[in-house]
Amino acid sequence: AKPPKTVTVKVEVTNADGETQTRTVTLTNLPKDLKPGDTVTLPETGQTARIVEITP
């Protein structure tokens, strides 16, 4: 079996106070056609994050 493909992405997350924070997260099994501006759900927090940058 192939190991899951991990991708490092820079995302913007809005916290409970309405502040936008930029975080770098490593995600696995992202859709192939994901692009900056799309939103993903962070598995560890369940927060919705907007992708700023994808590092191949």
Rank of each mutant, 00 (worst) to 15 (best):
A1W: 14
A1S: 12
A1R: 07
A1K: 09
A1F: 12
K2I: 13
K2S: 13
K2R: 12
K2E: 12
K2A: 12
K2H: 14
K2T: 11
P3N: 07
P3F: 08
P3C: 05
P3S: 03
P4N: 13
P4C: 12
P4I: 13
P4K: 09
P4S: 13
K5P: 10
K5R: 14
K5H: 14
K5N: 14
K5S: 13
K5F: 14
K5L: 13
T6G: 12
T6I: 10
T6E: 10
T6R: 13
T6W: 15
T6D: 06
T6F: 14
T6N: 10
T6S: 13
T6C: 09
T6V: 11
T6H: 12
T6Y: 15
V7Q: 10
V7W: 15
V7A: 07
V7I: 12
V7D: 03
T8F: 09
T8Q: 10
T8I: 14
T8E: 07
T8R: 09
T8L: 10
T8A: 05
T8D: 05
V9C: 06
V9G: 00
V9Y: 08
V9N: 00
V9R: 00
K10W: 08
K10V: 15
K10Y: 05
K10M: 11
K10L: 15
K10T: 12
K10R: 10
V11H: 00
V11F: 06
V11N: 00
V11D: 00
V11P: 00
V11G: 00
V11T: 01
E12A: 07
E12L: 12
E12Y: 06
E12F: 06
E12K: 05
E12H: 06
E12N: 04
V13G: 01
V13N: 01
V13T: 07
V13Q: 03
V13S: 03
V13M: 07
V13D: 01
T14N: 05
T14M: 12
T14K: 10
T14L: 11
N15Y: 08
N15I: 06
N15P: 02
N15D: 11
N15E: 06
N15W: 05
A16Q: 10
A16Y: 07
A16H: 09
A16C: 08
A16S: 12
A16P: 10
D17T: 07
D17A: 11
D17K: 12
D17W: 11
G18R: 02
G18K: 02
G18M: 03
G18P: 01
G18E: 02
G18I: 01
G18D: 02
G18Q: 02
G18A: 02
G18W: 01
E19T: 15
E19S: 15
E19V: 14
E19D: 09
E19Y: 11
E19K: 12
E19A: 10
E19R: 11
T20Q: 07
T20A: 07
T20I: 13
T20C: 06
T20W: 07
T20M: 09
T20K: 11
T20R: 10
T20Y: 07
T20G: 03
T20L: 11
Q21E: 15
Q21R: 07
Q21W: 13
Q21K: 07
Q21F: 14
T22N: 05
T22G: 03
T22E: 10
T22S: 06
T22A: 05
T22C: 08
T22H: 10
R23H: 13
R23E: 07
R23V: 15
R23L: 15
R23F: 15
T24K: 05
T24E: 09
T24C: 07
T24Y: 15
T24W: 15
T24L: 14
T24F: 14
T24D: 06
T24V: 14
T24P: 01
V25M: 09
V25Y: 11
V25F: 10
V25P: 00
T26E: 10
T26H: 11
T26W: 09
T26C: 06
T26Q: 11
L27E: 01
L27A: 02
L27I: 09
L27Y: 07
L27F: 13
L27H: 01
L27T: 03
T28S: 12
T28V: 12
T28R: 10
T28H: 12
T28E: 10
T28F: 10
T28K: 10
T28I: 11
N29C: 07
N29G: 14
N29M: 08
N29V: 05
N29S: 09
N29I: 05
L30V: 15
L30S: 09
L30H: 11
P31K: 13
P31S: 14
P31V: 12
P31L: 13
P31A: 11
K32D: 14
K32N: 13
K32R: 11
K32L: 12
K32M: 14
K32Y: 14
K32W: 15
D33C: 07
D33T: 08
D33K: 06
D33N: 11
L34W: 14
L34D: 00
L34V: 11
L34Y: 06
L34F: 06
L34M: 08
L34C: 04
L34R: 02
K35D: 01
K35F: 05
K35M: 08
K35N: 05
K35E: 04
P36F: 04
P36M: 06
P36C: 07
P36D: 02
P36V: 15
P36S: 04
P36H: 04
G37C: 03
G37T: 01
G37H: 01
G37I: 00
G37K: 01
G37N: 03
D38C: 02
D38T: 03
D38N: 03
T39Q: 09
T39I: 15
T39R: 07
T39M: 14
T39A: 05
T39L: 14
T39W: 15
V40T: 02
V40P: 00
V40S: 00
V40Y: 07
V40G: 00
T41H: 08
T41C: 05
L42C: 09
L42V: 04
P43C: 09
P43L: 08
P43T: 06
P43F: 06
P43N: 05
E44Y: 09
E44F: 08
E44D: 15
E44I: 10
E44W: 09
T45Y: 04
T45L: 06
T45W: 04
T45N: 08
T45P: 01
T45C: 03
T45F: 05
T45Q: 03
T45V: 04
T45D: 08
G46P: 01
G46C: 05
G46K: 03
G46A: 03
G46H: 04
G46S: 04
G46T: 03
G46L: 04
G46R: 03
G46E: 04
Q47G: 04
Q47R: 04
Q47T: 05
Q47E: 15
Q47I: 06
Q47F: 06
Q47L: 09
T48I: 14
T48K: 07
T48H: 07
T48E: 12
T48N: 08
T48F: 08
T48Y: 07
T48S: 10
T48G: 04
T48R: 07
A49I: 06
A49R: 00
A49C: 05
A49L: 05
A49P: 00
A49M: 04
R50P: 01
R50M: 14
R50V: 15
R50G: 02
R50N: 04
I51N: 00
I51F: 04
I51L: 04
I51Y: 02
I51Q: 00
I51P: 00
I51A: 01
I51W: 00
V52C: 03
V52S: 02
V52D: 01
V52L: 14
V52P: 01
V52E: 02
E53M: 07
E53H: 05
E53Y: 08
E53F: 07
E53P: 00
I54A: 02
I54P: 01
I54W: 04
I54Q: 02
T55L: 15
T55G: 12
T55V: 15
T55R: 11
T55I: 15
P56T: 13
P56D: 14
P56W: 15
P56G: 13
P56E: 13
P56M: 14
P56I: 13
P56N: 14
P56Y: 15
